[in-house]
Design a protein around this nucleic acid. Structure first.
Lengths: 243, 243
DNA sequence: CGGGACGTTGATCCAGATCAAGACGGGTGG
DNA sequence: CCACCCGTCTTGATCTGGATCAACGTCCCG
């Protein structure tokens, strides 16, 4: 596997990510422990474990999920390039959810034990880590609101809209189409709906012409209409830091 | 209103909070902008606003909530002593939920603009901020799992158990009883259930003798039994940092 | 003593769960 | 090259947990 230098990091091309200063880039080039490629289906982090590494996603998609003692599964959110994985284990000592690769992925690897040197020598990057955690908190709050208050149709519309916007913001896909390699079961588990109901709801949205998800590809010809169905405002994706 | 010195901070007595070193305490004494007392019902932070302050809760309880454009309300979580309020606005520029005082509260006030000096001069406290945000993320993930997967009874049992444990961990209440000043409507909105159903479920738990919440007081004679109903394991509250 | 906020309880309804059966590939081994 | 299997998607029929509707009780406060 070829290691790519930070300068050639695929994330450096992304417009919605705040790019590092030259100093930070130099620091991170030394700070990173290496690169890791995993194939689809790999468990990257395990609930209850305390991995010695954490990661930034360079390429590919995955999902975070959490299981109840009796096996019911909840998808917490979807993992995309730029996301930081394993911060919880790094600061709190243990993961509370698992992370699975849905496509092949490429990850930038950091050593958990080094995280202190980051806070000590690069306070701006420490601040960025807090930013990232706070942003995650923000999104989870929205998810809670969706699952707690929105109807089935609203939930599915909301989720498709969010996925579409996130991917477009990352420069993935083109025009009104983005790749979306998840299963309907994953979306159902993310929204607290049954597979059957999710499927029927997707069919309805397709019939209405507001969102068509098939063959691992999602097309949203009219985001505004989808937002309406989702009872959500259509806000632009803001710039965010990454490691 | 009497200002209490950090040395006399009510949180310094709490066993589940990691206490500051002498150096940090000195720093925080200067860092804090003051103290604020609010009465029950006050809106402390507003969705969409960008307050110039953030706060640590010294006393009292409140809740974070978020509203849909059409008025439906979701309670994101409950606010208790030791919690940090407004971190999102401080790092991301804008709150995505509101925070309301349910009882009278006393808050330790910090200036948002000073947060940089914290990261620069006290990296350990910057790390603590990340810890706090990651912990919040952790809890929200559990909430998502609850709302997405648990049944009504399980949800209510889970919530009461969590509230009971958090309060006991803070040294609030005694034995099997803790104060719980919220309305049934708040719990319903936190769990994505209707008020009526929540009420009937509380009555059932009371009849079973596993949890009795009335007159702003909750008693849980047998936490293990409640955990069983909640389909959750009964884990001990771990120590956490605070500002 | 009137009114408003909150809690309680019964009756009815429905969104979404569950059950059941196919359909449609894509991969594998014979 | 075909037969079979397995994972995923689809669609119809039925069932139910929890929503909604409707009253009423209770306490507190002005």
């Amino acid at each position: 596997m070829k290691t790519v230098s930070c300068r050639a990091c695929p994330l450096s091309k992304c417009e919605t990510l705040m790019q590092h200063t030259e100093e930070h880039r130099r620091f991170l080039t030394k700070f990173r422990a290496g690169e890791m490629a995993v194939e689809a289906g790999t468990q990257i982090l395990l609930e209850g474990s305390s991995a010695p590494q954490f990661y930034t996603v360079l390429e590919g998609m995955g999902l975070r999920d959490k299981s109840l003692p009796d096996g019911r599964r909840q998808v917490i959110n979807f993992v995309m390039p730029g996301d930081l994985l394993g911060l919880q284990a790094s600061v709190m000592g243990e993961m509370n959810h698992s992370i699975e690769a849905v496509t092949a992925m490429r990850l930038c690897v950091f050593r958990r034990e080094d995280i202190w040197s980051l806070y000590r020598t690069q306070p701006e990057l420490g601040y960025d880590l807090t930013w990232i955690a706070a942003a995650e908190e923000h999104f989870l709050g929205e998810t809670i609101t969706t699952i707690g208050q929105r109807t089935g149709t609203e939930r599915v519309a909301w989720a498709l809209l969010r996925l579409y916007q996130r991917l477009r913001g990352l420069g993935i896909g083109s025009d009104a189409r983005v790749p979306l390699p998840f299963r309907q079961q994953d979306l159902a588990d993310a929204l607290g709906l049954s597979l059957v109901h999710t499927n029927k709801t997707l069919a309805k949205l397709r019939a209405k012409g507001v969102a068509d998800w098939a063959n691992r590809e999602l097309s949203v010809p009219d985001p505004e209409a989808l937002a309406q169905l989702a009872v959500a405002e259509l806000e632009s994706v803001q710039k965010r830091p990454y490691l």
